[in-house]
Simulated scan of single mutants.
Amino acid sequence: MISTSSDSGRVSDAPSDNWVYRVLPRGIWPYAQLARWDRPIGWQLLLWPCLWSAALAANVAAAAGSFDWARLVGHLLLFFLGAVAMRGAGCTYNDLVDHDIDQAVARTRSRPLPSGRVTRRQAKIFMGLQALVGLAVLLQFNLFTIGLGIASLVIVAVYPFAKRFTDWPQFFLGMAFSWGALMGWAAEFASLSLAPVALYVGAIAWTIGYDTIYAHQDKEDDALIGVRSTARLFGERTRQWLVGLYGLTVALMTLSFWLAGVGILAWLGLAAAALMFAWQIRTLDIDDPVQCLALFKFNHVVGFAIFLALVLALFFA
């Protein structure tokens, strides 16, 4: 059982055996918690659209005879570093914006800012350092990709405020978290086409779906303090909405794969993802917070399955 007191140095919604608490000095823990290093699912879900897009572009390049494994691996590594850094910076920014809200929600009041283990000034400095790492990564790409990455900051800046003015904050999260579906393609071709755009919109639908499941953990607290979400909007109709959202994800990814001309193995990966979506919808109990968190995290497996299939398809391109 994780203590929720500030003396424990832990937060109530992070695993007690995470590497952060076994490896890092205790004084670093609050910063690791701000960046969510103790909860890797966030950067993982941010990373998958990047990797999908990079692998999709690689399939197109392979068909044209211009594929380079070293270039793909280099892009994947840069996207990994960028996802960890920018997710950390984004979470720190989000905690700064949501300081008062986090104090009112049981699951979040033990986080570094509301618990007083980090000052706002310290959090801002840490956010800036993470953003600089993200910028250093971004500058390794072509100019088109650099501009595209900078453009995403507008959405990132708006997202923490969305829950205050719309029932669809998950849509804004989807736009931010899915941006990598454009970046991977742009890194390869220094341009965009309909294939990555379809992938991007499909990833937005995916994000709305899995984050709605996640938001059901906080719906009672959210209702008390007036925070809006698709979990509260959909309510008992969440399963029907997920059918539409996950169905749209599969439909748009099908379009993207068809436009890119991927091989049979990639299609098998998408079929596996569709089955996993169906399983989530059938299994979901919106009144079981533990299960909601588990199903949310399961989307990491969905992302991996799609990416792995796209990479395997390269061997038969």
Results as ranks from 00 to 15, higher is better:
1 M>P: 14
8 S>L: 06
8 S>Q: 02
8 S>H: 04
8 S>A: 14
9 G>C: 11
12 S>Q: 10
16 S>C: 02
21 Y>C: 07
24 L>S: 09
25 P>N: 06
26 R>H: 12
28 I>W: 15
37 W>K: 00
38 D>K: 03
39 R>G: 10
41 I>Y: 03
42 G>D: 02
44 Q>P: 04
46 L>T: 02
52 W>S: 00
58 A>Q: 00
58 A>I: 07
65 G>E: 08
70 A>Y: 04
70 A>I: 08
72 L>R: 00
72 L>Q: 09
73 V>E: 10
75 H>D: 12
76 L>D: 06
82 G>M: 05
90 G>W: 03
90 G>P: 08
93 Y>Q: 11
94 N>V: 01
94 N>T: 07
96 L>D: 09
102 D>K: 00
104 A>I: 04
107 R>K: 03
107 R>P: 11
110 S>W: 01
111 R>D: 07
113 L>A: 10
114 P>C: 03
115 S>E: 01
118 V>C: 04
120 R>V: 15
123 A>P: 07
126 F>Y: 15
128 G>N: 12
128 G>H: 13
129 L>Y: 07
130 Q>S: 06
131 A>W: 00
135 L>F: 13
136 A>P: 05
137 V>N: 03
139 L>N: 08
142 N>Y: 10
143 L>R: 13
145 T>W: 10
149 G>A: 05
150 I>K: 04
151 A>G: 11
152 S>N: 13
155 I>W: 05
155 I>M: 10
156 V>L: 13
157 A>M: 08
157 A>L: 10
162 A>M: 12
164 R>S: 07
165 F>V: 10
171 F>E: 00
173 L>E: 05
176 A>N: 02
177 F>R: 08
178 S>G: 12
181 A>F: 13
185 W>G: 10
185 W>H: 12
186 A>L: 04
189 F>E: 01
190 A>C: 09
194 L>E: 15
196 P>H: 12
198 A>K: 01
206 W>G: 05
207 T>A: 07
209 G>F: 05
222 D>G: 02
224 L>K: 15
229 S>E: 01
229 S>G: 03
231 A>R: 01
231 A>V: 03
233 L>E: 08
233 L>M: 11
234 F>G: 03
235 G>W: 06
236 E>M: 11
243 V>C: 09
243 V>W: 14
244 G>W: 08
251 A>G: 12
253 M>G: 01
254 T>S: 15
259 L>S: 09
260 A>N: 08
265 L>P: 07
266 A>V: 14
267 W>I: 14
269 G>K: 05
270 L>H: 13
274 A>N: 09
279 W>V: 09
280 Q>W: 03
280 Q>C: 05
286 I>D: 11
286 I>G: 07
291 Q>E: 09
293 L>S: 11
294 A>C: 03
294 A>I: 08
294 A>H: 13
296 F>H: 00
299 N>C: 05
300 H>F: 11
300 H>V: 15
301 V>K: 05
301 V>Q: 11
302 V>F: 14
304 F>Y: 10
308 L>S: 12
308 L>A: 15
310 L>Q: 12
311 V>A: 08
311 V>F: 11
311 V>T: 12
312 L>D: 09
313 A>T: 14
